[in-house]
Every structure is written in C-alpha cells, then in structure tokens.
Amino acid sequence: MNAFAFFILGALVVAAALAAVVLPNLRHAGASLLGFTAAVGILSVASGAYATGALQLLLPAIVLVLMSVSLAGTRIPVITGAKLPSRRAMVVGAAVSIGFAALLLTTFAIGGSGWHAGAGVAALVSVLHLRTPYAFVIALITVVIGVGGALMAGRTGSDERRLDRTLEERRLRDERAQRRREDRDAARRSRGTVADEGGG
C-alpha cells in the first residue's frame, strides 16, 4: 500500500476516533463513529483486504439501519443527558491510555519483524468456510442473538406505550386540579380582602 495514502487514511481514522470519544453531543459522536468505521473499512480495502473492508463498511451500516427501522417511533431519550467527563476522569484516562500506547509501541518495536505472519493467496471466504467454519458460524449466531436481544430489550411494547399515555394524562389532570385549587384560593383571598375593605 502506498505510504502517502496510508498516512492520509490514518489521519482520518485517528481524527474520527478522537471525535467519537471526545465530543459531548452523542449525535455528533455517533456520526463520527460511523465515519471512523467507514475510514477503517476504506483503509482495509486500500491495503488489499477487499472482503474484510467491504464487511467493515457494510455490517455496521446494516445493523444501524435494522435498529433504526425496528426502533422507529420509540422514544430514545438515552441520547440526551450526556455531559463532558470530569477533569479527574480525563486526566486519569489520558495517563492510562498514553501508558498503554507506549507499552504497545514498545512491544511492537522489540518484537521486530517476528510478529506478523504474512499475506496469502487463499481467498478470505475459503478460509472462513474451510479452516474456521465453526468459529464463523458461532460468530454469526452471536451477532443474530445480540442484535435480536437488543431489539427485544430496547423496543417499547404496546402495553408500555399505553402505560406512558395513562401516566401522562394523570400528570396533566393533577396539574389542572392543582391550578384550579390555586385559582380558588386566590379568588377567596381577594374576596376576603374586598369584604374587609367594605366592612371597614
């Protein structure tokens, strides 16, 4: 792979990863995360791993679309309420991550050229089919169970929507009753004041 293209894609990957981690607004962070996975997929394609890159580009998009369609109409207020991390958490996180990065880089540097196996001529699909079929099937089943479980857990049933509506109606009724009570009290007070003035 051309080094120039690698550096450009690498810079994109790092920038998108930073944005996904640092941005306090979760919508912006989610968009950055999608950009990050897309940049990693493009990097894989550019380095020659076409099938892997295509999967990295397609799978997150498919899962996102599936979840968006299934959860359409469901309130997702979990998106709101995010805030910037505390200063102490930021300092600890930065220190630990810099330490781990140094450890990884040292390990790679000491390992020299002995830690990579090499490119191959066999197609990825044949490897997944012939050499690692059980792992592949188990991973696929895990994905189906994970996504299915998330949809079951995350979606709101009709009974829950009915309950939400009932609670909302009760809240409005209580508010109206409270307002009526306050108006009555205010009217009584003003009547009392007028009577006092008339009597005096």
Binding site: A49, T52, S113, A117, A119, G120, A123, L124, V127
Partner: peptide, 20 residues
C-alpha cells in the same frame, strides 16, 4: 499484518480473525 507481512503462502488468517 496479513496484507503487508512477510511470507506469501499463508492463507489470510489475519483477515479471517478480523471478520470474526
């Protein structure tokens, strides 16, 4: 590693691991 490493006869297990 799988795409740029040394060798040439090893099947792309790196890619397979990445997919899994």
């Amino acid at each position: 590693f799988a795409q740029t490493g040394k060798g040439g006869s090893v099947p792309p297990f790196g890619n397979a691991f990445a997919v899994l």
